[in-house]
Simulated assay, not measured.
Amino acid sequence: MQGHASDLVAMDIGGTHARFALARFTADGGIELDEPVTLKTSDYVSLQTAWEEFERRVEGPVPRRASLALAAPIQGETVRLTNNSWVIHIGALDTQLGLEKVTVLNDFAAVAHAVARAPEDQFLHLTGPDKPLPENGTVSVIGPGTGLGVAQFYRVDGTYHVQASEGGHANFAPVDHIEDELMKRLRHLHRRVSVERVVSGPGIVGIYETLASLEHRSVEKLDDRTIWERGLDRSDMLAVNAIERFCMALGSASGDFALTHGASAVVMAGGLGYRIRHVLHYAGFGERFRFKGRYEPLMASIPVKFITHPQPGLFGAAAAFQREHLSEKA
């Protein structure tokens, strides 16, 4: 058995986790997702072995149609994941996974599809005017995680077009003396310092160590998970300050992307963004977002929101499949 014709498997493959979920398209064009299966990519040598584990965990037939959101540029038949070792051969997915119809897209392009489709009650207001996303115009979509995801979509005349990007690999731009010191530190470690070296989950380590150095403090070597935990539970004030500094850098980067995209709104996504949503309100995120010289009035007019859908990558992957293969039925 191959599952109902309206079913598919949505996949969101990132640097740390691979998420799989059964998805269904309703008669009115809506999308329903089952509870996802989340696997650590480090526990599996390939997408194929992770897929086999997913199939073992699913009760009943697994659909032979799938949509894959991958944390990498989608160019050509071979996709190398940016922050894990998997290599995806798009042309071989039919034989490797037994699929009959496939959509493949960038992971943050999938999140942009989710943002474009989500109802207004699935957004939290962060900064700027508290108004809905524009019916016409460009929306930047940003998400710090294992890396920094960036995409955009353009709405016009009741439809939308998603544009993937690798904006997280743009150059990091220091704004003050602390970020100058952070840049110096990172230059000793990396041939080139991209914005995701700072504005991503692992980026908190460099921020934490830079703040310690500026205070001439000797601190134990900590991994990023520990720094985030200590900062969010406020058990380590240096970690608290590092998270606040992270929020400032995220505000600067988000404003830069909005200017570059000509955006009328910005939406943040991802688990890390959700964990720090309360910090963003007081840690200088909004001030840094607007701090663009002569363009401060323009930046102040842009709403910044957070999408609260629990699995925007999976939802967006299903939406992309629907647009590519079922547009006449959606």
Rank of each mutant, 00 (worst) to 15 (best):
V37P: 08
T103H: 07
G128K: 02
T308M: 08
A173K: 09
F315I: 02
K221S: 13
N106S: 07
G313L: 06
S264I: 02
A242L: 05
V111Q: 07
A5Q: 12
Q96N: 12
F123K: 01
V198P: 01
A92Q: 15
I31K: 08
E179L: 11
G147D: 06
I88G: 10
H261N: 15
F246K: 00
G98C: 09
F285W: 03
N171T: 13
K329R: 10
Y295K: 05
A212G: 07
F20W: 06
S42Y: 13
R187Y: 11
M183T: 08
I227M: 05
A317N: 00
A5I: 14
Y160T: 05
L99S: 05
R191Q: 12
S252Y: 15
P310A: 10
R197F: 14
D7H: 14
I90T: 10
H113C: 05
K40H: 15
L47D: 09
V193C: 06
I90S: 12
G271V: 04
E59R: 14
I88V: 15
P202C: 09
T78L: 14
S213K: 09
G270T: 04
P132A: 07
F306M: 06
S200Q: 04
R56G: 11
A318T: 03
E296I: 02
G262V: 02
V199A: 06
L93K: 11
Y160F: 15
W228R: 01
E209R: 08
L93Y: 08
E287H: 05
E53T: 13
E32Q: 14
L68V: 07
P132L: 07
G251P: 08
V79I: 15
G3R: 00
T159E: 14
R217M: 12
A118C: 07
F257P: 03
F25M: 10
H113M: 07
G3V: 04
G284D: 02
R191E: 15
A116L: 01
L8G: 11
V198L: 06
Q311W: 13
T210M: 01
F291P: 02
M1H: 14
R225M: 13
Q122N: 03
V199G: 03
G3D: 07
C247A: 06
A239L: 06
A18W: 09
P303A: 04
G98M: 09
L47N: 10
D233L: 10
E181H: 14
G14N: 00
L93Q: 08
K131Y: 00
R275N: 11
L68F: 15
D12W: 09
I178W: 12
Q2I: 12
V139G: 01
A269L: 04
E53K: 08
A239F: 00
A317P: 05
Y44L: 13
A23L: 12
